[in-house]
């Protein structure tokens, strides 16, 4: 896998009517890399991810996934190689479908065959026993649901996993479990991750490289090592770092609005 990056985004712009949510974002993610997009609410980080996944057709710019330029409509091959895990596991599973049906559907769509064995394997991989297979989502906890959502994304054996705040709707104790699961799965399968989060600690733990977004623009790109050492070039990033360490009066008084 030399040459082409796994994901390449060039001058991506997304607007919702009058509001320009993303204003010219460019970045690239190499194969096997874990890339983080950080920013506060409304910075446009989730919008970038949704445009990348093909859920938002109103964008301009250039998106290349596995070297192939992507249009507004994606083909089946794209979905086979690029899957997404949503933020809220309470909303991302169909309330009337059993876990079995939820996992069987992607296998049926892509005519992969051998659904029974695939479902059992997918459940085992995310640490759920087969006793969960015929339950409904409402019989599961938030962490278990997110495991099902991860299993659903991975059952297609994709190369890329887009993660939209995968732990922010979960209990703190469960967050670590899900993050460790994601780390293990990436190591086992050589997956490429794009992780969107407002939580710098999560991104520092999960990602090798990250980009900071504010008001629809990329403020700066840095690697996780630099983030841990607190070596940010931009004032906005430094402020975000300071805010993430918890509330203190000096930080609140020093707060600036970066337009």
């Amino acid at each position: 896998m030399t040459g082409d990056p796994m994901i390449e985004v060039r001058d991506l712009r997304v607007s919702f009517g009058e509001v320009a949510a993303v204003q010219g974002v460019s970045f690239r993610v190499e194969a096997g890399e874990s890339f983080g997009l950080v920013g506060e609410s409304g910075s446009g980080k989730s919008t970038v991810l949704r445009a990348l996944a093909g859920l938002n057709p109103d964008w301009t710019g250039e998106l290349r996934v596995e070297g192939r330029a992507q249009g507004r409509r994606r083909d089946k091959g794209f979905f086979k190689s690029c899957q997404m895990v949503f933020q809220d596991p309470y909303g991302s599973l169909h309330p009337r479908h059993t876990i079995d049906r939820i996992l069987a559907e992607p296998v049926a769509i892509h005519r992969m065959g051998d659904a029974d064995a695939r479902i059992e394997r997918a459940l085992a991989e995310v640490g759920l026993g087969s006793q969960f297979r015929y339950r409904y989502p409402h019989q599961l906890s938030g962490g278990q649901r997110q495991r099902v959502a991860i299993a659903r994304a991975l059952i297609l054996e994709p190369n890329i996993l887009l993660l939209d705040e995968p732990t922010s709707a979960l209990d703190v104790s469960v967050q670590a479990e899900i993050l460790n699961l994601l780390t293990r799965l990436r190591a086992e399968r050589g997956l490429t991750y794009v992780l969107v989060s407002h939580n710098l600690a999560v991104v520092a733990h999960m990602c090798g490289r990250l980009a900071v977004m504010n008001r629809g623009r990329l403020v700066e790109e840095l690697d996780a090592e630099a983030l841990r050492r607190g070596e940010a070039r931009e004032d906005y990033t430094r402020q975000l770092l300071r805010a993430s360490r918890g509330y203190d009066r000096a930080a609140a008084e020093a707060f600036r609005d970066f337009a």
Partner: peptide, 17 residues
Amino acid sequence: HSDFIQAARLQGASSAR
């Protein structure tokens, strides 16, 4: 617009499905 419909779309499900 709920996430589970978006998730189905992301799996490549057709509109009829």
